[in-house]
Amino acid sequence: MMVQRGMEIAENRPFSNAKLGVLILLGAETMLFAGLIGAFLVYRMGNVTWPPLSHADIQLPRLVTGINTGLLIISGFTMFQALRTIQLDKVKYLRYYLLFTGALGLLFLVIQGSEWIQLIGKGLTLQSGVYGATFYVLIGCHAVHVLGAVVWLAIVICMSWAGRFSSVNHTGVETCTIYWIYVVALWPILYFLVYFA
C-alpha cells in the first residue's frame, strides 16, 4: 500500500528525479566547458595576433563547419519534435524523428572528423602549440559529448522499438531531449568563439 502510494506520488510529481538528475549533470558539464572557454579566452586575448604567427597559414574551414552547425541545429529541432509526438502518443512518428536526429548527429561527427583529418594534414595538431591545443580540446570535448548523445539516443531508439514509451511514460525521451538540445545549443557558442574570435 505504502509502495503504491509512493509510486503514485512519484508519477504525479511535476519535475521528475530523472529530469533533475540530467539538469545537475548538465550543470557540471557547463562548468567543464566554462573552464575550457576560460582557458581559451586567456590564450585568445593574451595573443595580439590570432591565429599565432606560427599558424598564420592555417585557415579553419568556416563554411563547412557553418553548414555542419545548421545540420546540428536541425537535429535539435527534430529531437524536440520527437518529444512532441510522444506527448501526443504518436509512437510511429517518434521512431522516425529519433532515427532522423541520430542520422544528423552521426553526419555532424563524420564531417567534423573529416575536417580534423584535413587540419592534421596541414600541420595543426594537439602538440603544435596553444592554437592547436585549445582548438582540439574545445571542439574535441564537444564532439565527445555529441558521441555520448548519439549513444544515448541509440538506446532510446531501441526502447521506442520495444514499445517502452507512451504519452504518459516518456521520461527516457524527455531526458535524452534535454541532453541533446544542450549539446546543440552549446555548439554555436563554441563555433563562433573558436572559428571567428
Binding site: 576560460g38 582557458a39 586567456v42 586575448m45 593574451g46 595573443n47 595580439v48
Partner: peptide, 11 residues
C-alpha cells in the same frame, strides 16, 4: 596588457 585582460575576462 593583453594577457591580463584575458585573465580578467576569463575570471
Amino acid at each position: 596588457e593583453p594577457i591580463a585582460r584575458g585573465f580578467n575576462w576569463s575570471v
